[in-house]
Nucleic acid binder design. Structure first.
Lengths: 228, 228
DNA sequence: ACACTAATGGAACGGGATTCCATTCCCAAG
DNA sequence: CTTGGGAATGGAATCCCGTTCCATTAGTGT
């Protein structure tokens, strides 16, 4: 089943792992997670499902690979400046990538420790090092940042998909959510009611970056504390 | 399709939404996300799939309901002390609940704005209020905490499931991950290599709670800053 | 030219969610 | 006590998915 190394292409327009992944990303982007099926894929590549299995282990392999190709591209585009700024750029880049390709969110959570995750840990970790976080706390800091970035971005992407399923745009969706929350039982849900209004016209991306700053502040005070 | 209100039970051992949800939770707990199928469910309830659809809209409805029942129970068990301590308790409670019922993680991300999420936002938000966070920042703080809690817990649960699929216990799994990371290219992945050792015997739960403290510290400095 | 293997592609299988519908059950009106 | 009708049931049937199987093809070293 493992593909042997081969220096020469066999047919001109042959199937290849890369071309399959490229087509998968296109299908995922246009049709969401359900858009990627081996039937749709084989039709798009004008071949049969069997041929695809020669190059790919199974669907989860395919999903991880598609994910990795997008994550790699995203991280590669980051330009490095100060550590804090670079972390913000990584965060924003991933947030935007997951907004554009909502399927990445769920793909990442079902591929722990795999290639895309390592890329992300690495790019964040390098900045953490430059922030002079003591070695014993580096993993905590990097892990917290990564979890937060993936958690919020995925949640945000899921929101967008839910809205799309109901044929609403973002504004209408938030409007509906805000209305629902404001009609909750005041006894049981005072907080949800009180923030309902703010939900309506908040900016997810800005909130997300505010959260990143919150964590960066926390890392800073942790660093100061451990130096003392 | 909507079930009309009925004050009287029709048959003694009849199907009910609650009994279906209870059975679903049992199936999910014993067999993971794939354990819940309408076939298995109808067999366990000794009925047909059609009967279930009378009480439940579709599978996502079922999953959200199962999720809600566990989340509600978890949050109900929290005993309120100081705001910080209560937030830690909520966080730990959800972390543990998601560890025990790994399927909750993915169920939550695919049900944004729905009942279980509202419960969580509410319980966290009430504590945020008591921390005297200015109203304009309450949503940022509560949202960041929730995203972090769900993000890390889900990731952790996903790790556990991956390990289980490979028939490894947690230690062996971390061992394998650590080894893989330590063999990465030193040029490209210096950070992942350097933390590989620490991964081996780290405590996910402790790291998680450390991350919560990180965010709480951040919230504190935000509060101080906005007061000045 | 031959044989051998990498690669292909389409048919078939098992199992999932969901729908459909004939049937059963219970209450309430006559 | 009968009976009409809606609530509820359960099993068969549908449609689509991932995956496997296998006969066939296309290049390549001999």
């Amino acid at each position: 089943m493992v593909k042997k190394q081969r220096s020469l292409q066999r047919r001109e327009e042959s199937l290849s792992r890369d071309s399959i992944i490229e087509a998968s990303v296109a299908l995922l982007d246009s049709g969401g997670e359900d858009g990627l099926t081996f039937r749709a894929l084989s039709e798009r590549l004008s071949t049969g499902p069997g041929a695809i299995y020669w190059h790919i282990a199974d669907k989860s392999d395919l999903l991880t690979a598609a994910c990795d190709s997008v994550v790699a591209r995203t991280i590669h585009e980051i330009v490095e400046t100060t550590p804090e700024e670079t972390i913000r750029a990584i965060a924003a880049g991933l947030f935007d990538a997951i907004s554009t390709h909502p399927w990445i969110g769920s793909a990442l959570t079902s591929a722990p420790g795999a290639s895309p995750i390592v890329r992300i840990v690495e790019s964040i970790g390098q900045q953490i090092c430059q922030l002079h976080v003591p070695e014993t706390h580096q993993w905590t800091a990097a892990g917290a940042l990564m979890a937060f970035i993936l958690g919020v971005s995925s949640q945000n992407a899921a929101n967008g998909q839910l809205a799309r399923r109901q044929n609403l745009d973002r504004t209408d969706f938030l409007e509906a959510l805000s209305t629902t929350w404001s009609q909750l039982d005041p006894e049981e849900y005072p907080f949800a009611r009180s923030v309902a209004g703010r939900i309506r016209d908040h900016d997810d991306r800005a909130d997300f970056l505010a959260g990143i700053d919150l964590i960066l502040m926390g890392i800073e005070s942790m660093r100061l504390r451990s130096q003392a």
